[in-house]
Simulated assay, not measured.
Amino acid sequence: MPPSKLPPSARQRRLGAELRRLREHAGLSATGASALLGATQSRVSNIEAGRYAVSADRVRSIAHSYTCTDQALIDALAGMSGGRTRGWWEEYREILPSGALDLAEIEHHAASMHITSVIHMPGLLQTGEHARAVISDAVPPLAPPDVEHRVSHRIKRQAVLYRDDPTPLTAIVHEAALRMGFGGRTVARAQLEHLIEMGERKHISVLVIPFGAGTFPGSGQSTVYFCGPVAQLDTVQLDTDHGSEFLDAPAQLVKYRTVLDRMEKSALNPAKSRALIRRIAQDN
């Protein structure tokens, strides 16, 4: 099968990167792996770059050839096999940056999610009007149709919280984000009421870090931690001015798991968080 004409998605790149890690852990060079697998070195390189779609059976065969004995990891990698996921986000392929599509795909497949946000409301918990107010302030300014495309994409991403088997979500939000007032008083109050409503759902925990908590790790950026089917397949997404950045190196995952744990310890419990959000909403 020739390489796909489309650039590989983040999920395809991740599968290739994990197969490369298994090869390197086995002490094999790309040349050695090609001889072991009965494939050309070019094919091995294309698989590891995510440019070739590989079947679940092929993934299992490669993992066993690399003497991987972690059956849970092998099963999870096999579950990532095949071609590009043809999800709803593909309709935005010629409209939005590729990182937006990658984010939607990763959210779709995540086993659970942990979000931290200091200034902005988490995108998965934003109302349409709040999202529009934030996106309209992009630099450089977006044309009105582009704003609406991004708003609709953000709202469609939220489907993972409403499906029959919704994705568990823990959102750690600083009090500063609750008081920013994006979009004016009416929009801000509706956003806070929506946050309370979502936090009352069984699969969603909204935790607020109050101003009185003082300093805490991770205060400089918004972070999303996606839990994969096994810990090795977790992914971190950093929200930056130039787009999404995805991290998956083992040391990075350990660091951000530690940061999230410490942030959660700084936050109020869900009931006290909702009470604080209500007080702020009443002040608007």
Rank of each mutant, 00 (worst) to 15 (best):
L22T: 05
V236I: 15
I209N: 03
P270Q: 11
F182W: 15
E175C: 13
V160M: 10
I135S: 09
L142E: 09
G228L: 11
I135F: 11
S273Q: 06
A138Y: 05
V208T: 13
M1A: 04
L125E: 00
N284F: 09
L124I: 11
L96N: 09
H203L: 06
L15I: 02
A39R: 14
G128S: 08
E90V: 15
A271F: 00
S65Q: 14
L73M: 07
A35C: 04
P250M: 04
P210W: 00
R132C: 04
G123T: 04
Q252P: 11
K255R: 15
D234M: 06
M80I: 00
L207P: 07
T40V: 02
Q252N: 06
T235N: 03
I196T: 10
A131P: 03
A49N: 09
G79V: 07
A267M: 05
L37W: 05
A35V: 13
R13A: 00
A267W: 07
E197A: 15
A72I: 03
R13Q: 08
M1K: 08
S55H: 02
A17M: 06
D57S: 11
L260G: 08
D102R: 13
T240R: 14
V139E: 07
E107V: 13
T69H: 01
D241M: 12
E24T: 12
S45E: 03
Q71I: 15
E107A: 13
H130T: 13
R185F: 01
I47M: 14
A171T: 09
G82K: 12
R51P: 10
E264W: 01
P122N: 03
K255Q: 09
T167K: 10
F216N: 02
P2S: 08
G83E: 03
L15H: 03
S98P: 02
R21N: 06
A271S: 10
S34D: 02
Q191V: 14
Y92H: 09
K5G: 04
